[in-house]
Amino acid sequence: MKKLVQDFEVLHREELNDEHFTLEIRAYEPLPEIKPGQFVNVLVENSTQTFLRRPLSIHFVDYEKNSIKLYIKRIGEGTKKLGTLVSGDKLNLVFPLGNQYSIPSSSKTLLIGGGCGVAPLLYLAKHLKEAGNEVTTILGVRSAIDAVEMDAYKAYGRILVTTEDGSLGDKGYPTQHSILTNENFDYTFTCGPEPMMKAVARYAKEKNIPCEVSLENTMACGFGACLCCVTPTKTGNKCVCTEGPVFNINDLTW
C-alpha cells in the first residue's frame, strides 16, 4: 500500500466532551484503501513546541465523503492546537501508516477500548461486521459523560460500557465487565492504556483465544526510518509504526 503525503481540508470538528473531539477531514485526491488499525501522522504547523508530526489512529473512513475521522484527546501542545482547527482549515497528513487488525469471519469478536484508545475500534467494528462477525464492544471510561458515540458503535453490534465511578454500565474497568465471565468469545481486539491492554491479554490467554493489541509509542517519522518507536518482541525490537501498531500478544514479551 503506497504511503502518501497530502493536504486535507477540515470539514468538521465535533466536541465530544471536555477532553475529546473528533476531526473529520476530507482529502482532495480519492482516498486509498485504508485498513482498520492504521494511523496517520499529522503536521501541527506554526509552533516551535510541536516540531514533529502527531501520530493519530484512524477512527473512521467515509469513502462517499472521501473523508477520514480522527478521534483526539487534548493532551499536549499538538493535540490542543488540533482542537482549535475549524472547517476549511488545512491539515497535512502522511498516511496510511502501519499494519492492521486481522479480520476473521463468522466469529464472536470482543473489542475492548479504554480512554482515547477507543479511536481505532469503531472502524474495526465496521469491518468485522461486514465480514460476518458478531461484534461486542466494551468501552471503559471514567464516568457517564465520557461514554461518547454510543450510537455509532451500535450500528455494528452490541455496545457495553464500564465506568470507574459506576455512573453508567458496570462499575470498574472494562476487563471487569460481567460479560467476560458470562459469555465466550473467539477473538479479542484491544486498544487503550497499557495496564488495560495487559489485563485483556491475560483474559485472552486464560480463555486461549487470539488477542490483538494496538500499541502507542512516541514516533518521529511513522514509516520506519527513525527507529525511535520500537517495542521489544520475542524476535527482537520491532518498529511500532511499520511492524505494528497492531501486534498479536503472542509476539510480545508481555
Binding site: F51, T231, N237
Partner: peptide, 20 residues
C-alpha cells in the same frame, strides 16, 4: 545491535533528541 531500550526519542523546541 539491538539498539537502546524505549523510550529513544524526545521532542524538544524546534528539534528532537534521539537515543536509537
Amino acid at each position: 545491535r539491538e539498539g537502546n531500550p524505549y523510550p529513544r526519542m524526545a521532542e524538544t523546541p524546534s528539534g528532537m533528541l534521539n537515543a536509537v
